[in-house]
Every structure is written in structure tokens, then in C-alpha cells.
Amino acid sequence: MIGSHPLVLRIQALARELGFSQIGIAGVDLSSAEPGLMQWLAQGFHGEMHYMATHGTRRARPAELVPGTVSVITARMNYLPRATPADWQAVEFARLERPGEAIVSVYARGRDYHKVLRNRLATLATRIAEEVGPFGHRAFTDSAPVLEAELASRSGQGWRGKHTLVLDRDAGSMFFLGEIYVDMALPESAPVTPHCGSCSACIDVCPTQAIVAPQRLDARRCISYLTIEHPGAIPAELRPLIGNRIYGCDDCQLICPWNKFAKKSALPDFDAREGLTGRTLGALFAWSEEEFLRHTEGSPIRRIGHERWLRNIAVALGNALRAGEADAAEALASRAEHPSALVREHVGWALAQAD
């Protein structure tokens, strides 16, 4: 019977076969989240992510986004690479102490999670239809105006940490989220209680102090936003704080005590690709656009394009130069006459760090 608890148990079993670690069910009334969303937008914390303001309240109204939606199936998938060592947090922090090494956020070292989750959510929906018959549905993976973390926390996937990410006592925060909006009523999962307590480690460790209050992130200061979403020049005052991070930032997750329980992925898709881990900034800065496209095929990194890739690495090379990495100057000089004004400006700033 549709809407019965046995169906949810069956959905969870089907999801596990597809590599998902947990399934939850959320309702569609997110009205209590609307005021916070609108305040966040009003403060401009979304930066250049104009689509967030364009969609406005639709993010908090699933039935407006997909008419007929009465329940949301939320899915969680662990992404730590299968070869991740037990002391992975310490290993990742140590990379920050090697200014000539390029750091790519852990989640982006393997295959593009959008592709992996989207395909598996589609397969899950097909298998559910085989059990219950045709039903209306639409799957999302960070791909539409969806209040992903809100739906996840309401459906028992975890609680919102002070860094705004969803945290689980048994799995930390190193997981992706996806949703299937469905037109059939399913019993909602019970939310879990928060367990951050008085800990403020994520707020304290943020290099740019982008977490302006518990559960309040100013994306305009966030290194992940600046190196991935932001299309233009990185504010000069924030460049020294970026260090050697060239795509994303994991610091608020690395410091989190709950991530000692983070789980490895069951899939090879998220294993670190050769060429994206432990490489020098100079080596990656030397990639031609053709090489960039080849090395990032099927990777989430490709979507920032070669120009922003060079912009990011130029900043990191400038920071390396200031830290005494002499060969950074030679790498930077090779792009001093780059056709892109954006790249040239960041290279000029970086070369000036030797002064």
C-alpha cells in the first residue's frame, strides 16, 4: 500500500543496493524556513549566485517547484575515497603546511557527484515504480531551487551544523545529498536532535571568517564560493587567506569532531583521480586549456573553466611566493601575458607578493 511504512523500508533497501547510505522522508511544508532564507538573501550573503534570489520562495515550496509533490525522498551518499586513511583529517590539514602543493576539495577529486547521484536517483525512482506502479516524480542533485539541507535535516539525515552543513553522529558531514520529489504520500522520518553543543571549531577555523554566526554563512567570504561560484576577480583582501586551496575548502569539515566518524564511499566513482591530488601548483598552472579539459573530463572542476582555474592557482602561487617558494615566480611569469585580463590581474598581484 502506497504510504505505508513497509514501502519506505523497501525504498531504503533499494537505495542501499545503489550505494546510498541513508534514505529519509520529508514533508513539503517548509514555511518556517522561509523567513531565514529571505533574510539571508536580503543581506546579500548569496553573492553572485543570482539564481538563488531569482527563485526566492520557490526553494521553500516544493509543491510550487514541482506541482503535485506531497512528499520528498531524501538520499545521502558518502564520498570519502575508498583509500582514505584513518587519520585523514590530519593528512588533509598537513597539505595546508606545504604552500607549493595544490589543494582540491576532497569531494571534487573524483567523478562529478551530480552525474553519479542523478543517475542513481533516476534508477531508484524506476525501481520504486516497479514496486508501486507509475508515479509522478522528479530527482534533484544540487541542480534546482531546492532547500537541500533543510529537507535533509527534517527527514532525519542529521542536524544543521554551525557551518550550515548537515551533520550525522555516525557519519559526520562527508556525504552528498539528493532528493526525489514524489506525488505519493509517505510517512515522514523523525528529525534528529542537534549535537554541536558549545563547540565552535568550524566557526573559529574558517580562514576568511565566512561563518558569521551559527548556521549563518556569508558566501561572499567563503573560499568554496570564491574559487568555484564567483565569476570575477577574487577580492584582494581575501586572497592571502586562501592559501594553497585552488578548488573549494574543507577546513570547517576537517576540524569537526564528528567527522572522525565519516564513512568511506562504497563506490569507486569518488576515488581520487591521478593528477588532482598531491600535485604542485606549478604543474597544474602549466596545463593548457586542452590539458585542463582532458584532466577534468567527468569532474566537477571542469565547470569553472580554464580561465578561473588559472585565476585560482595564480592566487595560490602568490601565497606560495610570499611563503618562500622561489619557483612560484617562474610559474607565474609564464602567464604574465595571458590573453585574459582576469588571469593577468591575478598573476600581477601574485608576483607582487615577492616584495
Rank of each mutant, 00 (worst) to 15 (best):
L65C: 00
C252A: 00
A201F: 11
I304R: 06
L310F: 03
L151D: 09
I223F: 02
S224R: 00
N244D: 12
G133T: 04
P235C: 05
F20W: 04
T74L: 12
G298D: 04
T208C: 10
V315F: 07
I234T: 07
R303S: 13
G348T: 08
L80Q: 02
M174F: 15
R322Q: 15
A219M: 09
A219G: 00
E229Q: 06
I313R: 03
K162V: 10
A314S: 15
M52E: 06
L351Y: 07
R154D: 09
S4R: 13
A33V: 05
A144Q: 05
R335K: 15
H295Y: 10
R10T: 11
E337S: 14
M184C: 11
V72A: 04
I234S: 11
A90D: 15
Q215G: 03
H195W: 02
A102V: 10
G178R: 02
E179Q: 01
K115T: 15
A333W: 04
V205K: 05
E17S: 14
L80W: 02
I73A: 02
L186T: 10
C199A: 13
A314H: 09
E17V: 11
A129I: 08
I301K: 04
H137Y: 06
F140A: 00
D29K: 05
S173G: 14
S265T: 15
Q39P: 06
R109D: 03
V116F: 01
L226N: 06
G348Y: 00
W287N: 08
A201L: 13
A316K: 06
V91W: 12
I242E: 02
S71D: 06
T57A: 15
P85C: 06
E297W: 03
P35E: 03
Y225E: 06
D29S: 08
A283L: 12
A94K: 14
H137P: 11
F292V: 07
A108S: 13
L80D: 07
V315D: 10
A352C: 12
I180E: 04
A272V: 06
E290H: 13
V132W: 04
E274P: 12
V347N: 09
A26L: 07
E289N: 14
G158I: 05
S299K: 07
G243W: 10
I246F: 03
G3K: 05
